[in-house]
Amino acid sequence: METDPTPIDYIAHTRETYSSLGYPPYRWAHNDDPPPWATLDKPLEEARLGLIASGGVYQRGQVAFTHRDDVTHREIPIGTDLAEVRVTHFAFDLEAARQDPNVVFPLDTLRSLVSEGVIRELAPTALTFMGGIYSQRRLSAELVPVLVDRILEMECDVVLLVPV
């Protein structure tokens, strides 16, 4: 059991790592304004949930993501067997995700929660993309609008975001 209760400060850690490698400091996304707030207008058990995951997850047969500012996304039908799901990424240890994709792409977990009645249903396709996109401008201008449109088209009541 990990006994240290202090979360790792990855912003500070990455700043030090980059500095020691001679890289310029990375500018993390930072928002001071209060975030947009919306409340769920129905019980969770009546809600349709969309899943968006950024761990470089794709389905066998799809074109894998590149590891350099890939702002495309993949659509994985929610009935997909996780044995058909693959994970590649340049910045995290993939061992657990390849052993059990639920750790970064919780499709089995969410399907179980649907059968338990915690949520009513899942949106028909999960949306995945490649995290570690260093261009926040391209992320905001090219990828996010596409994901938002798809979530609206699928009439999701809530969306679960799973970054790595």
């Binding site: 990990e2 209760p5 996304a29 930072h30 947009p36 970064v104 977990t109």
Partner: peptide, 30 residues
């Protein structure tokens, strides 16, 4: 979901659930 507390706090989303796990395991152990 997030296992990178400082990064998510900086983004400042409306709701975040933090799991203090090593990166690559946001939703739990395999």
């Amino acid at each position: 979901m997030t296992s990178a507390r400082s990064i998510t706090a900086s983004v400042n989303p409306p709701r975040a659930a933090f799991t203090d796990f090593p990166l690559g395991h946001t939703c739990g152990p395999p």
